[in-house]
Computed example of a mutant assay.
Amino acid sequence: MTLLALDLNPFSLMMEPELVLQTMERSTQLRGLRRHKLRPLDKPLIPYTKEALAARAAYDAAIDAEDFEDVADAYLLN
C-alpha cells in the first residue's frame, strides 16, 4: 500500500496513533478551521422570576414527598 492509501484507511490509522498525528499535522482542512473558545453561558437565557423559582421548589418538594414505593407496589400488584 502506498503512504496515501495508509493515510486514508481508518483502520490503519486506529492502529498507528503516530500516523494519525502526522496525518492531522499535514491536513489542510484541519489547518483551515477557525479556532475560537467556547464558554458556558454565565446566565440563563430566560431569567427566572421569584414566582417561577417558588413554583419549581414546590413541584420538587411534592415529588420528594411522594412515596413511589407504594405507587409501584400498587401498580405491580394489579
Rank of each mutant, 00 (worst) to 15 (best):
M1H: 07
T28S: 09
L3C: 01
A52H: 00
V71F: 05
Q29L: 15
L30P: 01
L30F: 15
T28L: 12
L45G: 01
Q29N: 13
N9P: 00
H36R: 14
R34N: 08
D60P: 00
N9K: 04
V20K: 04
M1R: 04
L41D: 03
E66C: 14
L77E: 12
E69A: 09
E25C: 04
D7T: 01
V20L: 12
P40W: 06
T2C: 04
Y59H: 13
L19I: 05
T23I: 02
L4S: 06
I63Y: 12
D67S: 08
P44A: 01
Y48H: 02
A62D: 08
K37S: 13
D42Y: 11
S27R: 02
R39F: 05
D70Q: 11
E51D: 07
D60H: 06
F11Y: 15
A55K: 04
L77P: 08
L21K: 10
E51V: 05
L19T: 05
T23R: 09
P40K: 10
S27M: 02
N9G: 02
A58G: 09
A74F: 06
M24E: 13
T49F: 00
E18F: 08
A61Y: 03
P10A: 09
I46G: 00
K43G: 02
A52T: 03
L3Y: 04
P17R: 05
L45Y: 00
Y75L: 14
R39P: 00
L53V: 09
Y75A: 15
L41I: 05
A5F: 03
D60N: 08
I63K: 12
P44W: 00
L41H: 04
A5Q: 08
L3M: 08
M14L: 15
R34Q: 13
L6H: 07
A54D: 10
D64A: 15
E18Y: 06
G32M: 13
K43I: 03
K50Q: 07
T23W: 07
F68G: 06
